[in-house]
Amino acid sequence: MSLVEPKEKIFRSGFVALIGRPNVGKSTLVNELVGQKVSITSPVAQTTRNRLRAILTTQNAQLVFVDTPGIHKPHHLLGQRLVQSARRSIGEVDTILLIFEGCHPPGKGDYFVVNLLREEERPVLIVLNKWDLLPLEKSKQRENEYKDLFRELDWPIFCCSATHGTGLEGLIEEISRNLPIGPRLFPPEMVSDQSEQTIFRELIREQVLLHTREEIPHSVAVRIDRLEEILPKPGKKSQNVHTAILATILVERKSQKGILIGKGGSMLKQIGQAARLQMQVFINGSVYLELFVKVVPNWRSNPASLAELGYEGN
């Protein structure tokens, strides 16, 4: 009796862009898909500014998610560059996830985003996120409302909740099926290709958004001025390595600086403590963080300031 060699297992890999309007939950979805926080989140729209890549490796595939800024009508140079960044991603990936807030009916902005993708030859998968916020009796009606957006297009729909992690298994399977056959693009244990400096900068900005909400929504940026690992001194009992970070929070107006610092420095202290805890979880080590606040008028419309902060144009 002859033994038949088993067929080689097919492995797929590729890039997947998350496209949608601001605040539809793209970053929360990315974090849930990879099982770890790699993208900052907040209730404030346009939280994501950089095209962040998060990596999920399964037995059959490696999915590289590209979390993009929300597509919106820009009101300054920074906004223009964020939208350019999101639109560039559409042409640089293998599969597209088009994310909507499923708990709300489609609006004009949703029609605009659909029209951007209407002629795409790449696979497009629809994700109706925040499905847990929709009453069960309205689910069929809401799904049909979104189907009307792309009635003539063969785009499958997945109803999900990034917050609760429901509906994601089927989505991952469908994404994997749509990726090209190929080897791993990153080591299997890797979940993000972002530098520590970039992640630290974003963790600080996240806490600014969470603590100040609408008072300083989009006028803030963070610059890491110093990042250093401090080795323990010879003879010290503690052998732990400390990461020392010196960062500057940039705002556009003097009044915003006052809000960020707070009475007696209380607000800046809260922001720093919360960001430091997040950083320590990320690196699984000790962090010393020192924050400063600087006013840079109209930095969002200044090409030199944007370039210094890494928001490059085309």
Rank of each mutant, 00 (worst) to 15 (best):
T48H: 01
T48I: 00
T48N: 04
R49G: 09
R49F: 08
R49P: 11
R49D: 05
N50E: 05
N50K: 15
N50S: 09
R51L: 08
R51W: 03
R51Y: 04
R51D: 04
L52I: 15
L52M: 15
R53P: 05
R53G: 00
R53I: 01
R53V: 03
R53Y: 12
R53L: 05
A54V: 06
I55H: 03
L56N: 11
T57P: 10
T57N: 07
T58H: 05
T58P: 00
T58D: 05
T58M: 03
Q59C: 08
N60R: 10
N60E: 14
N60T: 13
N60D: 09
N60C: 03
A61T: 13
A61I: 12
A61G: 12
A61V: 10
A61R: 12
A61D: 11
A61K: 13
Q62C: 13
L63D: 04
L63Y: 10
V64E: 02
V64Y: 02
V64R: 01
V64G: 00
V64C: 02
F65G: 13
V66A: 04
V66I: 12
D67Y: 10
T68W: 02
T68N: 04
P69V: 07
P69S: 02
G70D: 06
G70N: 07
G70M: 07
G70A: 12
I71E: 11
I71L: 14
K73R: 15
P74Q: 00
P74K: 01
H75A: 07
H75R: 15
H75L: 11
H76K: 11
L77G: 10
L77T: 09
L77Q: 13
L78D: 05
L78N: 04
G79H: 01
G79N: 04
Q80G: 06
Q80D: 14
R81N: 10
R81H: 13
R81Q: 11
R81F: 03
L82S: 05
L82F: 01
V83P: 02
V83Q: 00
V83G: 00
Q84E: 15
Q84H: 12
Q84V: 08
Q84M: 11
S85A: 15
S85Y: 01
S85I: 05
S85P: 09
A86H: 01
A86Q: 00
R87Q: 12
R88I: 01
R88N: 13
R88K: 14
S89Y: 01
I90M: 04
I90P: 04
G91N: 14
G91T: 05
E92K: 13
E92W: 05
V93A: 06
V93S: 02
V93P: 08
V93R: 12
V93K: 08
D94K: 01
D94F: 03
D94E: 06
D94S: 03
D94N: 10
